[in-house]
Computed example of a mutant assay.
Amino acid sequence: MSISDNLHKPTKALGGLELHYLGDIAVIVMDCGENRLNIPFLDNFNELLDDVEKNKACKGLITTGKGKFYGNGLDLKWLSTLNSPETMKEFYKKLAVWLKRLLLFPLPTLAALNGHAFAGGALMAYAHDLRVMNKEKGWLCFNEVFISRQFLPFHLLYIRTKMGSGHNFTDAIVLGKRYTGSEALDCGLVHAAPSMSLLLSESIQLLKSFYGKSGYPGDSLYLMKCSVYSEVVEQIQKDLAAVDDRPVMNVSNNVKSRL
């Protein structure tokens, strides 16, 4: 069963991404195979986020996948086809700005992990305020250590803010531990771990339990997130500046190795 089986015709569809509304909650469904990150994916996702922000009746955002994956990280095949270091630089900057946008989004956000969330998919999930994970199938895993890639400083800052600095952080980040939904719940890495058939309904219930009937004032929520994640925002700006200052010829190899 897919989460989209409970949804009607999307309000908007772009390149395998669909925007649905269930009452006052927006649901973005990713149906791009393994939902790997590349420039077309980020551009389409941002356009749907624009639509959500313009909908003043919307009080929350859920993102989820369709099928086996929530997200499987960078689109390495797509990256290998890039012949322009400038395009690589553009992708790196778009990815950082997109994660920042999710982190600071002026609505409460929830990642409903229908399946595997690896590497960049896990980074995406942790850019949300809340996480709910299918307990029947799928792993949550920051597997960068296994694929010879390093995190950028701002990645580690916002993950640590949400995960803490104890053994969960070192197990997940240093050792790349794989967590099932039940294990992730036991470790406090997700907020709930229902069966797939209840993933959407429990995600909605959890999200509504925070914003109640009236919802959050968007400006206030945004400013609160800016305050709480101020060190992350500062580090993102430093990371972006470093890319601009780095010689174009070196950007491709550096970004591939660090993401």
Rank of each mutant, 00 (worst) to 15 (best):
K59S: 00
I236N: 08
A119S: 15
G71I: 00
D129P: 03
K94P: 07
R160Y: 10
S197T: 11
L103I: 08
I28V: 15
K225G: 02
L157P: 09
M196P: 05
V255P: 02
A241Q: 15
A117M: 12
F146G: 13
H155N: 15
G60V: 06
Y222S: 04
T63M: 04
T63G: 00
R36E: 15
G33H: 12
A125Y: 01
G65H: 04
D186N: 10
Q205A: 12
V248Y: 04
G212W: 02
F45P: 00
L175E: 12
G218N: 13
E53L: 14
L19G: 09
K208F: 00
L175T: 09
T180D: 07
G23Y: 01
R178F: 03
L221M: 04
A125H: 06
K162C: 08
N168L: 12
A122T: 13
M163S: 10
L7Q: 07
G73H: 00
S195H: 07
M133V: 03
S148V: 12
N83Y: 00
K54A: 15
A119G: 05
S84G: 01
Q205I: 03
N114G: 12
L185S: 08
N72R: 08
L104P: 00
E234A: 13
D5Y: 05
C58H: 01
Y216I: 00
Y21N: 05
R131F: 02
Y70M: 10
I236K: 06
G176Q: 14
N114A: 12
R246V: 06
N46H: 11
C141K: 08
R101K: 15
T81K: 08
F154Y: 15
P10A: 10
S209R: 05
L223M: 07
S227F: 05
E234S: 13
P194V: 13
A127I: 07
W98T: 14
I39C: 04
L200R: 04
Y229G: 10
K93T: 10
W98Y: 12
M133Y: 03
K89F: 04
K68S: 14
E136Q: 14
K9H: 09
S252R: 04
V145R: 13
G212L: 00
A122P: 04
C187L: 08
L240M: 14
N254W: 14
K256R: 11
E234G: 06
P85W: 02
I3A: 12
H191T: 03
M224T: 11
D43V: 13
D186P: 01
G164F: 06
G65M: 07
E90C: 08
E18A: 14
D186E: 13
W139L: 12
C226G: 10
F105Q: 02
L19Y: 00
L175Q: 06
K213C: 03
N83L: 08
D186C: 06
S227V: 03
V233C: 13
G138P: 09
G212A: 01
C187I: 05
E231Y: 07
L107M: 09
E86G: 07
